[in-house]
Design a protein around this nucleic acid. Structure first.
Lengths: 261, 261
DNA sequence: CGGTTCGTTGATCTATCTCAATTAATGTGG
DNA sequence: CCACATTAATTGAGATAGATCAACGAACCG
């Protein structure tokens, strides 16, 4: 799985370039790793965490339960994601994190992370960037749930899923591992299982995807992206197009206070 | 305008206690303020910002437009909110921010914020906390949109709106300024205006709220909270129950780390 | 005081949900 | 490797929350 290179590095490097030494620093972050089966909780609502966690392999999600017992997945956590940054500053978890597929999680003690942040501002910035990146994904999910049809929502989620795995080199051509059950897709998209099933069949019928045996294959990327109104800019760490992060200088102008039409 | 006390201070202080000096530091953050009318854009998708912004008064929101021209509000921005933190690290805006009510916005140059963060780790922490706080609100909105009915969603939004204004002392008994149009409520809750209208009437009919002339009055808080499944813990900055957030002295410096239960 | 925006109402339509089975996969003990 | 148990995917049919379309009154506004 990890051949001397780990997904966090790939991910963070996509956001911020590092020196050799910083990379060494980063890989030394964690000492303890935990293996979890599928559908197991990593942290629960109400917990107080003393460590940050980093997903090394597998798939996890953030989720919350409503008062009447419905479940809503608020985010997927893919390898390379540090998913407990908030525990550094906020005391108790307001939601839970659970695995979807069998996963490996690395634990990073808070002190280690704080110290390393002090030692290297660039590392610290990368970590914060990661959390801003996640906020961008949250916003996109809000749009997805609020203003898109079932068909569109699912297409969008699939695009995002593929794109995020591509960021960490975990795709194989047009295919990604898709260890999710349709119930989980429903919980992520705010739909019922039945309707998810039918929408997926529609996506299949359009020849956009193939989905079987835990593998999602995107047969027609631009078609799927269009179906899901997926633009993906929000995943590029706020950089225009494919320009290398932090290369060169800052852009031109400042805040534009425009008139609304 | 600012009568010796400003909403940002109130807000940040709720998250982190400050020394006198730090408070002076904070109020010196901005030099330039801008007055905006209602329904004006502050920043637009695609912009590159060189300043962070802070809402001093009024009401604003983050929003995005879908490919087919629908609008989704992803967050309300209330006085005291620093709403461009992400511009520190991410180059281009992936969404827009616009006012709802006439507003005053303070601009904080990036350099100032960076410098001040270096000078005072506690200030820096408060700013980051603010962004984690916002992420918690995003998650709650995802749940709201994904798993609650129209009636529940609107009730929830109203509770949150009241609670957030209460945090910065901008409520008057059971009432808050509510400068929002029903179209805007619809854009925030992912509903149609017509249905928002009917749901509001239902809330009125239940005797939970009064809403007129730009003022929302909550007649029955626990009823409204129950209707909207509003728990509010996610607004308490991750502190257990109703314990006053770090009230009194600064106690231990640094980040609290507790045991997991 | 005519125009525009906002709130409200009525009527119809439809995307999505719920309930209830059935089939297909996957796993398990013997 | 088989019989059984369990979980996941699929299908059908009926119910409904919420959308859409269209109109109208009230408030605001220059």
């Amino acid at each position: 799985m990890l051949v001397g290179e780990n997904p966090m590095l790939r991910k963070l490097r996509a956001l911020e370039p590092f020196s050799e030494e910083e990379q060494r620093l980063l890989t030394s972050l964690y000492t303890r790793t935990v293996h979890l089966g599928p559908r197991q909780d990593v942290v629960r609502e109400g917990d107080r965490a003393r460590e940050c966690s980093l997903l090394l392999s597998g798939l996890a999600c953030r989720y919350a339960m409503t008062a009447d017992g419905k479940r809503q997945i608020t985010a997927f956590i893919v390898p390379g994601d540090i998913f407990d940054i908030q525990s550094l500053l906020l005391e108790v978890m307001d939601h839970s994190v659970g695995t979807i597929a069998p996963s490996t999680v690395a634990m990073i003690p808070h002190e280690t992370l704080i110290q390393i942040s002090n030692d290297s501002p660039r590392v610290s910035r990368a970590v914060w960037k990661e959390s801003l990146f996640e906020a961008a994904v949250f916003r996109e999910w809000i749009v997805n749930l609020g203003r898109r049809s079932a068909y569109q929502r699912i297409a969008h989620v699939m695009c995002e899923f593929y794109a995020r795995h591509k960021l960490v080199d975990l795709v194989d051509g047009d295919s990604v591992a898709w260890p999710m059950t349709q119930t989980e897709i429903a919980d992520a998209t705010g739909l019922s299982v039945v309707h998810v099933n039918r929408s997926i069949q529609a996506l299949r019928g359009e020849g956009l995807i193939r989905l079987a045996a835990g593998v999602l294959t995107i047969q027609n990327w631009s078609g799927l992206a269009e179906a899901g109104q997926f633009e993906g800019r929000y995943l590029q760490g706020g950089f225009p197009k494919s320009a290398p992060p932090l290369s060169g200088e800052r852009g031109t102008d400042g805040i534009r206070t425009g008139r609304t039409g």
